[in-house]
Amino acid sequence: MCHKDCKEIKGGRFTRWRIKLSVSNVSAEDGGDYACQAQLTHTGKRYTILNSITVNITETHGYAGRIPKIIYPKNNSIEVQPGTTLTVDCNITDTRDNTNLRSWRVNDTLVDDYYNESKRIREGFESHISFQKHIFYTVNITFSEVKMEDYGRPFICHAGVSAAYFILKLPAPDVQAYLIGGLVTLIGAAVSVTYIYNIFKIDIVLWYRSAFLSTEIKEDGKLYDAYVLYPKPQREIQSHEVDTLVLKILPEVLERQCGYKLFIFGRDEFPGQAVANVIDENIKLCRRLIIIIVPEFLSFDLLKNMSEEQIAVYNALIQDGMKVILIELEKVKDYTAMPESIQYIKQKHGAIQWSGDFTKQSQCAKTKFWKKVRYHMPPKRPPPSSSAQMLKHTY
């Protein structure tokens, strides 16, 4: 409680703050004797403390030069994330003999009083540095946890008649971070899709063909899906394996199970036809060339001498640009001993290694080996028209 000239001080111009009494809009009538008393408890005993001061009011010229200057804040905004701990300093310069009150307020109330219950936002102790003509004051405000209710609310630093505020606001979205994050996500998704596609590419293509392409394919005048070219090994065991694969397993899987149509020399030509004419005419009616490779040097010497291989490879590589499917009966480690045409085909189209064992289990179109062959085969087409069938019988 404070008194002036033995009368209790009342009115909005007088504010008690901690150990100070602030008087705003000072006039000559405010001069006089002031006394303030407070209660103090020490070692269980209660004491009354009284302090008094005499105030003389004098007129000064150039009062504007004595107004405190708030350096910071500057009526600015501060970006901060919710839940953050934040401390903001109020920096003030004032004349040495000035007695202005320095404090933080919110909603016209001292911060410590406004947040008296939660104590989430508190005003810190004042510090100062003295210079020859002025004093630099610092008094801070601390948020133990920034909450959504604090955003957009002015927190005002008062120094006598001077005041300045700051407002908290949410940080602007980091567009660059979003762009980088989005780009990384897209790249990651593209890599994942590419990786998954490479693993399941064959299954995806075969499914797509069976679901969509069968009704979209137009007639191209071809009668066969593939021409099968195979060597005649000199060893009896290899000859038997090649004949089994070409004359039994290939027709069983590709023709009967998958619906393809193959031309196999020795099986499909008419008796009495000239070999060169049969090969030249029929290979032009095929969409693919299947070459069976046996890892034996002599088996490919036939390409240098027999007209069947020469005409087939010539048509596939030069004349028609036909896609070639190489099937290795056994793993071929070195292609350098083979004709350049076979080396070129291997480099351009790759090769599929036979993984069967000439039993019924190897004659299933859904095995990995046959899926690879079907992937390189053309999409299945609708049955040829009657005119195309008649064309076949004219040869």
Rank of each mutant, 00 (worst) to 15 (best):
M1W: 13
M1G: 14
I9C: 01
I9R: 02
K10E: 14
R13S: 11
T15Y: 07
W17H: 12
R18Q: 11
I19Q: 12
K20R: 14
S24F: 11
N25W: 08
S27N: 14
Y34C: 00
Q39I: 12
G44P: 03
G44I: 00
R46I: 06
Y47L: 13
Y47K: 12
T48E: 12
S52R: 12
S52P: 02
V55T: 06
Y63G: 10
Y63T: 10
Y63L: 14
A64C: 10
R66V: 10
I71T: 14
K74L: 14
K74N: 11
N75S: 05
T85C: 15
V88W: 01
D89H: 06
N91T: 13
I92C: 01
D94P: 01
T95E: 11
T95F: 10
R96W: 13
R96H: 10
N98L: 08
N100R: 06
V106Y: 00
D108K: 06
D108G: 01
V111E: 01
D113C: 03
E117D: 15
R120M: 03
R120G: 04
I121Y: 03
R122S: 10
R122Y: 06
G124R: 05
I129F: 08
F136G: 00
Y137G: 00
Y137P: 03
T138D: 07
T138M: 07
F143C: 01
S144L: 11
E145N: 13
V146H: 05
D150R: 01
H158E: 10
A159V: 02
A164G: 05
L170C: 04
V175S: 08
Y178F: 09
I180S: 04
I180L: 06
G181P: 01
G181C: 02
L183G: 12
T185A: 15
A189W: 09
V191D: 00
I196P: 05
S210R: 15
L213R: 10
D220E: 09
L223G: 04
E236W: 11
I237F: 13
I237T: 15
D243C: 04
L247W: 06
P251A: 03
L262K: 00
P271Q: 11
V275Q: 13
V278N: 04
I283Y: 01
R287P: 02
R287W: 02
I290N: 04
I290H: 04
I293Q: 03
D301L: 13
L303K: 02
N305G: 09
A312R: 03
L317H: 09
L317I: 11
I318C: 09
L326R: 02
E328A: 03
L329Q: 05
K333I: 07
Y344H: 11
Q361V: 14
S362K: 09
A365C: 13
K368R: 06
Y375V: 05
P378M: 12
P379H: 04
P382L: 14
S386Y: 08
M390C: 12
L391H: 09
K392L: 11
H393D: 12
T394S: 13
Y395H: 10
